[in-house]
Structures are given as structure tokens and as C-alpha cells.
Write a protein that binds this DNA or RNA. Structure first.
Lengths: 168, 168
DNA sequence: GAGAGATATCTCGATGTCAAGACAGTACAC
DNA sequence: GTGTACTGTCTTGACATCGAGATATCTCTC
């Protein structure tokens, strides 16, 4: 038995056991920690991006374009699929990024309904610098685990994620 | 070498390696998966709560009260520390929960600045039912892993979380 | 016991998101 | 080629959140 409370989730689980002894709350041991870690990661991201005057949502759009490779150009539709936001949100984001001079919008020459969004020079430089910074912080966050443990963790998480992959 | 792409994060990492071969993107193997899993978990939560006519934010407040044990009563200040939201948000949440008949507000007899918020009968029944449902879905989400793997995963995640615990 | 600073809660304005729907253009069947 | 369904983007209105500040009360020191 692991009876000593080591982190806040252990305390949370202990509180539930006291109040609802009829329930098996083991799933919380994994999933509450996933949620909490994600929250801390969000803060680290926000901090890393703030150094480069970027909001997390800006970074998300810019990295999608960056990953696409030269000429760093995608349609709004492709961007919203990459970032999992709605079309209204994406329109709003592109508007603000264009106004900030980080992306450019131009009509799609092949489809008159369509638009193509591409990184500007500034946008490219900004996202590259921010990504570098983010990786530095992520490495720091993982520094408690050795390489072997990190691989184990990645592999277990992948198992949980595979059911979600193709659908949606 | 694990060269075959198994999930979307493997594809993401491969894309970064192609575009930024100068960077060590290994941290993404763990942390991108944490973020994504948290997102899927949010959806599962939303779905579980919808069955009981609860929004995630409502559940968060109600469970904090539920975990406190009889008489299921806490101050707004204690609630906002438990849920990590700002005071303005908590006021708003309590207003709406009270209007929905799930919690009650009464002046704190010991501190005239203060207020105490408690679960109503309806609130208690609602949160217990929703929690049961949530655990069922979480178990389903974890069904790809055996008990030993789940313990390993919980333990690795705990290691990553401990640095965050007491500070803040 | 009076004043300074801390604490508890609420109010208000701005922001980013989503959902639903509007609108233009395209694709395919007949 | 004409009609129907689909696709891509943008518009609008509602909503939950945050941050800053307002108000009331408590606490501690002198």
C-alpha cells in the first residue's frame, strides 16, 4: 500500500476515499495528474511566449504555419483543423495576427472562395525564437526524469491516445 | 530507433525534425501527449456532466464542497483556492449555482465580511451522480492499460508534479 | 481605542471563445 | 448546362473568464 500522501493528488484521492468509500477512485491517480500537469504546462508556455510578445493562441497558429515548411502557407480551414478551434475563432485570430504583421492573407488563386495565410519574415523569426524558448522550459519541466523514464512515460501516454487518433 | 509513426504526436515530432533539425524536440514526446490527453479528458468530462445537466465549472465548485464533507460548506475564498479561479469568477459562479438551486449562500456568523456557501440536497445528489458517471468514463479511457502500467504512469506523473506542490 | 494595513467579497469593463447561420463559390449528377 | 448539395470563410450574439478596483470588516500595533 502506498499510504503516504506525496502530492496534492494523493490528498485529493484520500479526501474522496473518506467521503465516498463506496467508489473506486483509482482513475484519478492518473487522470487528475494529467489535468494538473497540463495546467502547469500551459503556464510555462504562457511564460515562454510572453518573452517574445506572443500569446499562446498566436503561437499555435504560427507554429502550424511553420511546420508546414516553405512557403509557410496554409488555408484558414487547414489551420483550424490543426489547432482545433472553430472557424469564427480562426477568422478572429488571423485578423489580429495580420494586424500585428506576423501573417499575410491573400486570395487563393485556385479557389475563389478561399484564402491563403502565410508567415511574414517577422512571424517566422518570432515563432522560431519562441519555440526554442519553449523547448528549453519543457526540458526543465522534465528534468526530474531520466531519459529511460521519459521514454516509458511517452509510450504509456501514446497507448492512451491511440484510440483518439484517426477518428475526428 | 522508433521510426514508425504511431500517433499524431509522432507525426508532429517528425514534422519538427524535418523543419528544425537543429533542435532537440524530444520533450514534445511527453508534453504534447499530456496536453492532448488533457484535452480529450476535458471532452469526456463535459460529456459526463451533460448527462446530469451540469457544466464543468459547476461540477468543479460542487465537488469542492462535496469533498469538504458535512455540512458541505466552504467560504468563497476557500472555493477559489480549490478551483484556481479569480474572485470575480467565483462570485459569478456562486450566483448562478444559487439561482439553479444547487448551493445556498448565508452570511458567516463569525466574520461579517464573509459568506458561507453550502450544497443543497439537490446539489449533493447531482454531484454524486455526476461523479459516479465521470469515474466510469475515466475507467474506460484508461482501459488500454493494465493495473501495473497505470501505477507506473501515476508514479511518473507524480514525479513531474511534485516540484509544483507546495509553492503557489 | 484609533489608525494602518490586511482580508473577504463583489462590481465592472475588456477579451477570447463558441455555436449558429449567412454568403459566395465549387462539384457532381442528370 | 442546370439544380442540388457541399465547402470555405466570415459575421453575429451570448457567455465565462480575468484583472483592476471598490467597499466593508477584521487585526494588530501603539
Amino acid at each position: 500500500m502506498t499510504e503516504d500522501a506525496r502530492d496534492e493528488v494523493d490528498l485529493l484521492v484520500a479526501a474522496w476515499r473518506a467521503e465516498r468509500p463506496d467508489l473506486d477512485v483509482e482513475p484519478l491517480q492518473v487522470l487528475s495528474r494529467v489535468s494538473r500537469l497540463a495546467k502547469h504546462l500551459d503556464r510555462a508556455r504562457r511564460a515562454a511566449f510572453a518573452e517574445h510578445d506572443l500569446e499562446p493562441w498566436e503561437f499555435d497558429v504560427l507554429t502550424a504555419l511553420r511546420r508546414a515548411g516553405k512557403p509557410y502557407e496554409l488555408s484558414p480551414g487547414a489551420l483550424l483543423r490543426a489547432t482545433l478551434v472553430t472557424s469564427g475563432t480562426m477568422t478572429n485570430r488571423i485578423d489580429r495576427l495580420a494586424q500585428a504583421g506576423l501573417v499575410r492573407r491573400r486570395p487563393d488563386p485556385e479557389d475563389r472562395r478561399g484564402v491563403l495565410v502565410s508567415l511574414t519574415e517577422t512571424g517566422l523569426a518570432r515563432v522560431d525564437a519562441a519555440f526554442d524558448d519553449l523547448l528549453r522550459r519543457e526540458r526543465e519541466l522534465l528534468s526530474g526524469l531520466g531519459p529511460a523514464d521519459q521514454r516509458t512515460l511517452a509510450s504509456l501516454l501514446r497507448t492512451l491516445l491511440t484510440p483518439f487518433d484517426s477518428p475526428l
